[in-house]
């Protein structure tokens, strides 16, 4: 009876599920997120090389971790002004959930106009000897709505003073301005921790679901830069073309501008945007996103800095090696 009913019921499934399963292949992460992972990995390697230690002991607060990552990446201590700006953006959370002998804690968080960053602490004997793991399931909900999981990443950072693993969870919306309220109800769900190497092996099966509230305060301070013309690569025509940049705005957390190019221009994935600090000797890449306007000619481009910056330190924006100074 059971077998017949189940067999018949499976046969009655909408064919969309069958088609989806027949065609399913694991999607690649978005390029921008892969870039983010690469930058973090490079930063950790750089840190190990310059500091001369195999493993850094991190603090439990997102602000502390960003300060240490900054030091590893630049070789310099983060200035007090910048640290204070970051500290002002970081919110304590402290919500935990245990499963499979592992306790996951969202220690702290940061919310920007388009992103949510969470510092996740994972502790338990089952993790001993494991390097950075990946979550087989990673879902983030904001105000009850699950965000696009292809825009959500989990990055292993290192160990804290108690040997717990630290991970950065980063969700970035395709475009800034999410019409978020000042209070966000956030839920993160993690399922089954696995090795990141192919084939992925589950190390700790379990579900960790944590709900908490975050405050969102839109960023108000910004710097407007003069319009500029830069050369960008047109993949369709396989040649460089002029692009006129307008409404260039830089904030402590990111940038945005409009880009007027030939309508045939097919993409912005070769556009490199960096922020130039101080005397120009230091620059840091942004994580760029693009969105075409309806007429297909004007592209709205925006992105974020991995570390919030002190606006006073920003001396220029660099787009495809063209420097646009702060006036």
């Amino acid at each position: 009876m059971n077998a017949d009913l189940i067999t018949k019921a499976m046969g009655e499934l909408d064919l969309k599920y069958v088609d989806e399963a027949a065609a399913y292949t694991r999607p690649r992460r978005r390029r921008v997120l892969r870039l983010a992972v690469a930058i973090v990995a490079a930063a950790l390697l750089l840190g190990a090389g310059t500091v001369g230690v195999a493993s850094t002991v991190y603090g439990r607060n997102l602000g502390d971790v960003l300060g240490m990552l900054w030091q590893e990446e630049t070789g310099e201590t983060m200035r007090d002004e910048q640290a204070a700006i970051i500290a002002g953006m970081v919110q304590e959370v402290g919500v935990s959930r245990s499963a499979g002998g592992v306790t996951a804690t969202v220690t702290s968080a940061r919310v920007s106009d388009r992103s949510i960053w969470l510092l996740l602490r994972m502790e338990g004997e089952a993790l001993n000897g494991c390097g950075g793991l990946i979550a087989q399931e990673l879902a983030l909900s904001v105000d009850g709505k699950v965000v696009d999981n292809s825009s959500t990443g989990l990055e292993y950072i290192g160990l804290d003073g108690d040997g717990a693993q630290l991970y950065m969870v980063h969700y970035s919306a395709p475009e800034p301005g999410q019409n978020w309220d000042s209070n966000l109800d956030v839920e993160i769900k993690l399922g089954d921790l696995a090795t990141g190497l192919y084939p992925e092996e589950i190390v700790v099966p379990g579900d960790w679901s944590m709900s908490f509230g975050l405050d969102y305060v839109p960023e108000t301070d910004s710097i407007a830069l003069a319009d500029a013309t830069v050369r960008v690569y047109d993949r369709t025509r396989e040649e460089h073309v002029d692009a006129h940049l307008t409404q260039i705005v830089v904030t402590s957390t990111g940038f945005s501008f409009n880009c007027d190019v030939d309508p045939e221009y097919s993409g912005f994935d070769v556009c490199l945007v960096e922020v130039v600090l101080g005397d120009g000797s230091a620059s840091y890449p942004g994580l760029a996103y693009t969105a075409a306007n309806p007429d297909g000619a004007i592209w709205s481009v925006s992105g974020e800095w991995r570390f919030p910056l002190d606006l006073q330190d920003i001396s220029a924006l660099r787009v495809n090696m063209y420097t646009i100074p702060v006036r």
Binding site: Y24, R26, Q136, A194, Y198, P199, E200, E201
Partner: peptide
């Protein structure tokens, strides 16, 4: 496992 790119145990 072969189709999805994860281990059989997974």
């Amino acid at each position: 496992a072969a189709q999805v790119g994860i281990s059989e145990g997974n």
